[in-house]
């Protein structure tokens, strides 16, 4: 990992030195164990701050919109996929970004790791060779890294950036294709069970909008929940209001969600937001044979119309 950090710094220094970009968006060390944090670099000498490890879980594509400068972005594959969608949706031009792609082994889900410790506080975390070592007052615990990945990473089948200008390190082996087995499992449940599950999850929501604000594809200048006229949904935490927020958001992301899981990780209340989004990812794949963020050339299915578009989901939901 530290090797990758070194290569990233080297590449960034060069980009800034040759004035190819004005701004670099990457990660630096966080203030808490198991955290890296987004950082913004404009001077060569600041490149030292950049790091790469298994805690670089934010989707940095979030920060690309509404900027004038020429930007280099350190992109793991889900960041790169979000960039593809942003380019297609004309939120940024291909020429404005230099994509520094980093093949990815998956990011650590710190909550999964914490759950292993039954309330004991992690004060230090280190990773090497597929192991994650957690230390605290009076304990050291070694975990197998691959058992503690974010859920989004577990089901990720595009670990090598699909688009890049500079590639850091060697590629990583891809898994076989996504079978959406988790979604199939969910679909197998009865309507009542599914409704109850989603309702239970959504009832925890406090409408902090961290999910929306962390999502690289939620960039609307005014989100429908903020509109006052017309007012699409109420503002309280009553389940009828929060449900509309989550359902509408999921629909807005159909065929656009790149499955990075940024929403879910941002959520302080551990709402299983992924269920809805991933169900739609799966539907779009099944119905339109389309995956978001893979190709710059293919138009998103919900941004176009063909007479022979499947419509079964409308007629018999």
């Amino acid at each position: 990992m530290s090797e990758l950090s070194g290569q990233i710094r080297e590449a960034v220094r060069k980009l800034l030195r040759q004035k190819e970009v004005d701004l670099v968006i990457g990660f630096e060390a966080g203030t808490l164990p198991l955290h890296s944090t987004p950082c913004f670099i404009r001077e060569q000498q600041e490149a030292e701050r950049l790091i790469w490890n298994s805690f670089c879980d934010n989707n940095l594509a979030k920060y690309l919109g509404k900027r004038q400068e020429k930007i280099a972005i350190i992109a793991k594959s889900c960041d790169a996929r979000a960039i593809v969608e942003l380019i297609k949706e004309k939120q940024i031009s291909r020429e404005q970004v230099v994509i520094v792609g980093v093949p990815c082994h998956g990011m650590i889900d710190r909550r999964r790791a914490e759950a292993e410790l039954e309330g004991k506080e992690i004060l230090e975390a280190e990773e090497n060779d597929g192991e994650l070592t957690l230390k605290g007052n009076g304990f050291t615990k070694v975990l197998k890294r691959s058992d503690y990945l974010c859920y989004g990473c577990e089901v990720c089948f595009h670990r090598n950036p699909v688009i890049y200008d500079i590639l850091i390190g060697d590629g990583v082996a891809e898994k076989a294709t996504d079978q959406y087995s988790d979604i199939a499992e969910f679909e197998a449940k009865s309507t009542e069970e599914r409704w109850r599950y989603i309702s239970d999850q959504v009832s925890k929501c406090i409408r902090c909008y961290a999910c929306r604000n962390a999502c690289p594809l939620c960039y609307c200048r005014e989100c429908f929940v903020d509109n006052t006229h017309p007012q699409w949904t109420g503002k309280t935490t009553d389940i009828s209001d929060t449900m509309i927020f989550h359902l509408m958001r999921a629909f807005h992301l159909a065929g656009r969600c790149v499955g990075c899981g940024a929403c879910e990780r941002a959520c302080p209340m551990k709402v299983d937001i992924r269920k809805l989004n991933r169900k739609l990812v799966s539907d779009v794949k099944v119905l339109f044979d389309y995956e978001a963020g893979i190709s710059l050339d293919r138009t998103a299915p919900l941004a176009t119309f063909k007479p022979d578009d499947p419509e079964g989901f409308m007629l018999n939901p």
Binding site: T37, P38, C39, F40, K62, Y63, I206, R207, C208, Y209, A210, R212, N213, A214, G234, K235, T236, A266, P268
Partner: peptide, 25 residues
């Protein structure tokens, strides 16, 4: 603050933050 997402977490979860809005439904 460049990385801030302008979400509600730090204020909603803060025991001493109290800002509110008044709306009609």
């Amino acid at each position: 603050t460049e990385k801030c997402l302008s979400c509600g977490i730090c204020t909603y979860l803060c025991p001493s933050c109290y800002c509110f809005d008044i709306i009609d439904e």
